[in-house]
């Protein structure tokens, strides 16, 4: 009897531990970029807009533009890192960004855009889809070897058609293009699952 109680107790503790771990794990589209070392006298910017601020932004535009409010509400987190590159941190930062890209590819993220220009500028866009209809996360990595490295992570339940619609509405060309690219990515993902 004592043994049984002990086993049930152990199982309960284990189950609680697992559920706590699941609850504590970040949303599937969230990426931890890790720590960057800012170079001396160089620029370093970090912006983290979480759901409470996004919800506030949605409240502010709700009356004026319900569609935009809906799009803003579908985003859970916007994380932007800009790291100015100097001789002291260039090599480490570039290696760090490439490591992030490698981890994204091994973690099942899809690489949608990869541009490497002659001047060394290197852009990568990665997406993670949710059920083939929406995006769980979007990561943009930019390395401009002379100036800076930029990392962007957008997490949420983002519908590509909403992004495209917002681009059309505000007549913002890059947003239109991103919306179209995201539509392609999600439809490809849905096709591959079928």
């Amino acid at each position: 009897m004592k043994k049984m109680i002990r086993y049930s107790l152990a199982t309960a503790v284990l189950a609680a531990g697992v559920s706590i771990n699941v609850l504590a794990s970040p949303p599937s589209g969230q990426v931890d970029f890790g720590k960057f070392t800012p170079g001396d006298d160089s620029e370093f910017v970090e912006v983290q807009i979480k759901s409470n601020l996004l919800s506030l932004a949605a409240q502010l535009v709700e009356k004026q533009d319900p569609a935009t409010a809906k799009l803003v509400r579908s985003v859970e987190l916007i994380h932007v890192n800009v790291i100015g590159l100097t001789d002291a941190n260039r090599a480490d930062t570039v290696t760090h960004v490439r490591q992030i890209r490698h981890e994204l590819e091994t973690d099942g993220w899809e690489r949608n855009v990869m541009v490497q220009q002659k001047n060394g500028e290197d852009v990568g866009v990665y997406t993670k889809t949710r059920g083939g209809e929406a995006l769980a996360g979007l990561v943009v990595t930019v390395i401009e070897p002379k100036d800076e490295a930029v990392l962007v992570n957008i997490v949420g339940d983002i519908r590509p058609d909403q992004v495209a619609m917002l681009g059309e509405k505000l007549n913002i060309e890059p947003l239109k293009q991103i919306g179209a690219a995201l539509k392609d990515a999600t439809s490809k993902d849905a096709a591959s699952k079928n």
Binding site: E43, E46, V47, Q48, G84
Partner: peptide, 11 residues
Amino acid sequence: WDRAVGVMDGH
């Protein structure tokens, strides 16, 4: 409290 923005530039 959470940090929403952090900027280091020059000094």
